[in-house]
Nucleic acid binder design. Structure first.
Lengths: 342, 342
DNA sequence: CTGAAAGCGCTTACAG
DNA sequence: CTGAAAGCGCTTACAG
């Protein structure tokens, strides 16, 4: 910056003011400084400027696996907003309990960002306390806490919509499949199960434990086992509501392998509206993951930039919607589904 | 840091030395300092330390869409390595030509990281020059340049393996489908097409332009159109080699919609070994995306940390391998594939 | 509208 | 093994 000042024949204060776009610089001076900066292809040192302003110009996102669809979509939304607002995007991912503990143990070191978005976590009270102690704006994504800014969909409502769609198609035996999660990353899963139960109750369908399964994630055998369990019940389900599109796709694949037709023998419904769902003609409950990320980023920027704290407990809820595609069909009684011979 | 020094009864120099783990600190002092730091839950200001060391403690990754499978997997690999080495991960994504131009125009501003990994780009000479001017370590990921450190798979060789697998199954009419890309993000696509042609030639199969299609990405109609084009040829293909698993999955879906059986009527082979491939029993050419990301991160760290420049043109090539699953089958002539009545 | 000076919180020679 | 002092490159009152 000193070089730029010299070349433009002004002081560093003026260079600083010019580069930050302050109005108190004459057009002529501004011109000289900008040309000098460009000629030297000068880039300001963020380290130096953060040291004095206390702002880092960065927003951090903590999420689960970087390969997960939801995190990718959220990051895309966050990134789009941050590009506009000039912040850089810092990403932290934790994929198991050990990493999670390590992250929260070394939390203070993460103070080197202006805000932290926490995605899909089911935060413990200790973790909440740690975040409080950080003294840094924290925005929850895809989870709700009354005293924190949060951006989310109503997962229970989404699940109710999905199940209702199946009920409206005439299904009465509706299973629910949710990947087993030992890490507590998904705040949403519990809510979706709740929504499933609520929708059944509202439809006057008794809840049946045998229709709710939690296979380990991404294990083919477990998915086949789930199908096997369902298809060996006295009264098998005629529809499956899956906790995510990824699970739904795996279920469909396992059903096909067992020569069961979707939706002929079994309707399958997902949750997310993953790209996959469109490709594979999967009916699903859509949630706008990109928009959620974008809204969370905008909220974080607002909190950073406003001195007044009225954004600090703002909640943004996005709607879910059912996308009816080819993997669900009206229930038609058939011989196949009554395996008990008289 | 001054607070910590006071509480521990030492100078800030000593606190700094202790916290950086320098050996020249007595055990007793170290103990006092660490306790004080912990009690105050002190976190060092990276801004201040980078200002003097010139290191930011951050590594930046530039890539295509954050939702893309490849970038997600690469980021996961990068993140794992950076966690070990203590760097933070900064992510930049450009999704179209305008954003790409904007990124490279404002390139100097990106100097606020210790290294930049550039993923999946087909860099122009101007972009290369811009990166050179940055004076910052740059590692190419999934692309090759002789004078830059690069981490990649041999895409041509991978495509040869894939096509060879189809040839070995008896297929002679083998199509190639590659999403149309107007943005020049995928360095790999050209190489894969080359590999396809090489494999055909090696097998003595004439290249047929009618068997190579470039539908727009993610447009269902275009995929169905591709299938239609193939199935209305005088001699339709009996196998399709797709540029990626995502395309393969969409093709299979379009084939099913047209009541064509996979692999009965058409073998389909992908590229990547996306999770999807396992779920959907898709044969594919596997590339280790996570490992590629990890290796690139390690290489970047090595370049940053070594004064000698011998890593600066190191190239790391990963192997691809064919994963044979259920979407490919031996070629069996059948009436269906000879639609021309005598 | 512009400049000189202090200071942000660290690290790094330099002494001891 | 430890401390005092200078300085990294900015921004921000304070003068003018």
């Amino acid at each position: 910056m000193a070089d730029v000042a010299e070349r433009a024949g002004v002081s560093v204060s003026t260079v600083s003011r010019t580069l930050r776009g302050l109005p108190s610089v004459s057009a002529d001076t501004r011109d000289r400084v900008e040309r000098a900066a460009h000629e030297l292809s000068f880039a300001i040192s963020r380290s130096a400027s953060s040291l004095v302003t206390g702002r880092t110009g960065r927003i951090a996102v903590l999420g689960p696996r970087l390969e997960s669809w939801f995190l990718g979509a959220v990051l895309a939304g966050v990134h789009t907003v941050l590009r506009e607002t000039g912040y850089d995007l810092l990403v932290y991912s934790v994929t198991d309990l050990a990493e999670r503990r390590a992250f929260f143990d070394r939390l203070p070191a993460r103070r080197n960002a202006d805000a932290l978005l926490v995605t899909s976590f089911d935060l413990t009270p200790e973790e909440h306390a740690g975040l409080d102690a950080l003294g840094m704006p924290v925005v929850l994504v895809s989870q709700y806490a009354p005293d924190r800014p949060s951006v989310y969909v109503d997962d229970a409502a989404g699940a109710r919509q999905g199940v209702r769609h199946l009920v409206n198609l005439g299904h009465r035996r509706i299973a629910f499949v949710q990947p087993r999660d030992d890490t507590g990353f998904s705040w949403s899963s519990r809510a979706r199960l709740t929504g499933y139960r609520q929708a059944l109750e509202a439809a006057g369908i008794p809840y049946d434990d045998a229709l709710v399964r939690r296979p380990a994630q991404h294990v083919r055998r477990e998915l086949s086992g789930t199908i096997g369990a369902f298809m060996s019940l006295p009264e098998p389900p005629t529809a499956i509501f899956a906790d995510s599109d990824e699970v739904a796709v795996q279920l469909i694949s396992a059903l096909r392998a067992a020569h069961l037709d979707v939706p002929g023998d079994m309707s399958v419904m997902g949750f997310d509206d993953h790209q996959l769902a469109e490709w594979l003609d999967l009916s699903t409950v859509a949630q706008p993951a990109r928009e959620i990320g974008g809204a969370a980023a905008r909220l974080a920027c607002a909190i950073i930039e406003s001195a007044t704290g009225d954004e600090r407990t703002r909640h943004v809820e996005f709607p879910t919607s059912v996308v009816a595609r080819g993997s669900t069909a009206p229930y038609r009684p058939s011989a196949q589904t009554c395996p008990e011979a008289p």
